[in-house]
């Protein structure tokens, strides 16, 4: 046998560390059973289409916030939808105001793995005059203890758009220039 010496432990954390380092290790469980654990990484590049949501993301890059409106029942969706969820009609694009109010909010001290480096960050759902539904976005330039339901906020756009929902965020209204849109 061409034996390869493996780290062996009854402590799962230690095994995890060894797997990361050596690619494999053995976990010994309570019954004394040996379990071979291997490193098994996984990465993938998706070719993602925004499809009917495209005008929204192109709009953000242009410093515009767009919702959609149902011509049949006049419902205005602040988070755009290609069709009306109430009557099924195709919606049309409308510009939303760049000021709104906090409908609800939280401060996240953790997140999905890819977002841990951004913690803490605030999330808020924003209400707009003339819109029937709300929009979820990041809320910046304010601390947990300063945020409240009903707080007036205004939009900021990324000068380097990544064509992501993170190209827009909100700040307390009148909070100063912050990062202006390129337009």
């Amino acid at each position: 046998m061409t034996g390869r010496k493996l780290f062996k432990s009854a402590k799962f954390q230690e095994v995890n560390t060894a797997v990361k380092k050596d690619g494999a290790a053995i976990f010994v469980d309570k019954e004394g059973q040996e379990n071979l654990i291997i490193d098994n990484p996984y990465a993938i590049r998706y070719i993602h289409s925004y499809a009917e949501d495209t005008p929204f993301f192109l709009g953000l890059a242009d410093g515009k916030l767009r919702g959609t409106k149902c011509g049949a029942c006049n419902y205005v969706f602040a988070t755009p939808r290609g069709n009306c969820q109430f009557c099924g009609e195709t919606t049309k694009w409308v510009d939303l105001p760049l000021r709104g109010k906090v409908h609800t909010w939280t401060t996240c001290h953790f997140g999905g793995e890819a977002f841990l480096k951004e913690t803490p960050y605030n999330l808020a759902m924003i209400e707009f005059e003339g819109a029937n539904s709300v929009l979820l976005a990041r809320l910046k330039d304010c601390k947990e203890e300063e945020i409240y339901v009903g707080m007036p906020v205004e939009a900021r756009f990324s000068p380097q758009p990544q064509f992501s929902i993170t190209d827009i965020w909100f700040v307390p209204a009148g909070a100063g220039p912050g990062q202006r849109s390129k337009k």
Binding site: Y50, D53, T106, F115, Y121, M125, V149, I165
Partner: peptide, 27 residues
Amino acid sequence: NFDFPLGGFYTGYYALMVQRHIYEYVR
């Protein structure tokens, strides 16, 4: 498209919900 890129975090969504629940029924 709209939710995941903001934090990829379900606890955040539930925190948003209970904050509004508290606002409606307690505040």
